[in-house]
Amino acid sequence: MKNKKVIISIITLCILLILGFLRWDNLESESSVDFKYKYDRWTGQKWVDFYPPLASSNSMEFPLIYIDKINQDDINKYLGKQALTGELVNKWIERTKFTDGYLGLLFMNIIVIIYSCFRIFVLKRKNT
């Protein structure tokens, strides 16, 4: 019975890890030097990483709401408009909830596996 719990937890862990790896779809065909577009499959939201030309390695990441592409000249206007409407924050909150839920399930699953294995090994030592 205890082995079933471990096996189910390991299968669930594998499924969670696969879902984590498949979350993001990099849209290379739309990306450019300054912009890297990606699609969050969990939330159905398109995001962009903007790498300013004069910044060394700092990037800005934000969701694209009601548009599919953006150019460098329109970023400040776009972010200002979306920040005022509150949609930018709502998209971040939605993404954070999915990420936190996923990480919670992942850590809970790992703890169950560790605890179950510990119990199995402790019981084996007591029986021998």
Score class of each variant (00 low, 15 high):
Trp47Pro: 05
Phe121Cys: 07
Val6Ser: 08
Thr128Tyr: 11
Leu17Thr: 11
Tyr78Leu: 01
Gln72Tyr: 13
Pro53Gly: 05
Asp25Pro: 05
Met108Thr: 12
Met60Cys: 01
Gly44Leu: 00
Lys77Phe: 15
Ile8Asn: 14
Cys14Lys: 07
Thr85Phe: 02
Ile120Ser: 01
Thr12Pro: 07
Pro52Tyr: 00
Phe62Pro: 00
Lys91Ser: 06
Asp74Phe: 13
Lys81Ala: 09
Ile18Asn: 01
Glu87Tyr: 14
Thr85His: 00
Leu27Asp: 13
Asn3Gly: 09
Phe98Asn: 06
Gly104Ser: 13
Glu61Phe: 07
Thr12Trp: 06
Asn26Phe: 15
Tyr37Asn: 00
Leu84Arg: 13
Ser56Cys: 05
Gln45Tyr: 04
Ile110Asn: 04
Glu94Asn: 14
Ser59Arg: 12
Ile110Tyr: 03
Lys97Thr: 08
Val6Lys: 06
Arg119Lys: 11
Ile7His: 12
Tyr115Gly: 04
Val122Arg: 15
Asn3Asp: 08
Arg125Asp: 14
Lys77Gly: 11
Phe62Gln: 03
Asp49Ile: 12
Ile10Gly: 03
Glu87Pro: 01
Gly20Cys: 03
Gly101Gln: 12
Gly80Glu: 07
Ala55Arg: 06
Tyr102Trp: 04
Trp24Ala: 05
Arg41Val: 07
Ser57Phe: 14
Pro53Phe: 08
Arg119Ala: 09
Asn71Cys: 09
Met108Ile: 10
Ile18Gly: 03
Asn76Gln: 10
Glu87Asn: 15
Asn3Trp: 11
Ser57Gln: 14
Arg23Asn: 10
Gln72Lys: 15
Lys91Glu: 08
Leu19Met: 11
Ile7Tyr: 10
Lys126Phe: 05
Ser9Glu: 01
Gln45Asn: 10
Phe35Arg: 02
Thr43Ser: 11
Pro53Trp: 06
Phe50Trp: 10
Asp100Arg: 12
Lys91Val: 05
Glu94Tyr: 10
Lys38Phe: 15
Tyr115Ile: 10
Asp34Lys: 07
Glu94Lys: 15
Ile120Ala: 01
Phe35Asp: 04
Asn3Arg: 15
Trp92Cys: 07
Asn71Lys: 11
Glu28Lys: 06
Asn76Gly: 08
Leu13Ile: 04
Tyr102Glu: 04
Tyr37Ser: 00
Thr128Leu: 13
Leu22Asn: 12
Asn90Asp: 11
Phe121Met: 13
Asn90Val: 07
Ile75Leu: 03
Lys81Ile: 04
Leu105Glu: 03
Phe50Glu: 06
Tyr66Trp: 10
Met60Pro: 00
Leu88Trp: 02
Asp68Leu: 09
Asn71Thr: 08
Tyr39Ala: 04
Glu87His: 12
Asp68Arg: 11
Asp40His: 02
Pro52Gln: 01
Gly101Asn: 13
Phe107Ser: 09
Cys117Phe: 08
Phe121Glu: 11
Trp92Ile: 08
Asn76Trp: 06
Asp40Arg: 00
Ile8Phe: 14
Gln82Glu: 13
Glu28Gly: 02
Leu106Ala: 01
Phe21Glu: 09
Phe21Lys: 12
Leu105Gly: 07
Ser9Val: 00
Asp68Tyr: 09
Leu84Asn: 15
Phe50Tyr: 15
Gln45Ser: 08
Gly44His: 01
Ile8Tyr: 15
Tyr51Arg: 09
Ala55Ser: 09
Thr128Trp: 07
Leu88Pro: 02
Phe98Arg: 05
Phe62Cys: 05
Leu27Tyr: 04
Asn26Arg: 15
Asp68Glu: 13
Ile120Gly: 01
Glu94Gln: 11
Ile114His: 02
Gly86Lys: 03
Phe107Ile: 14
Val6Asp: 05
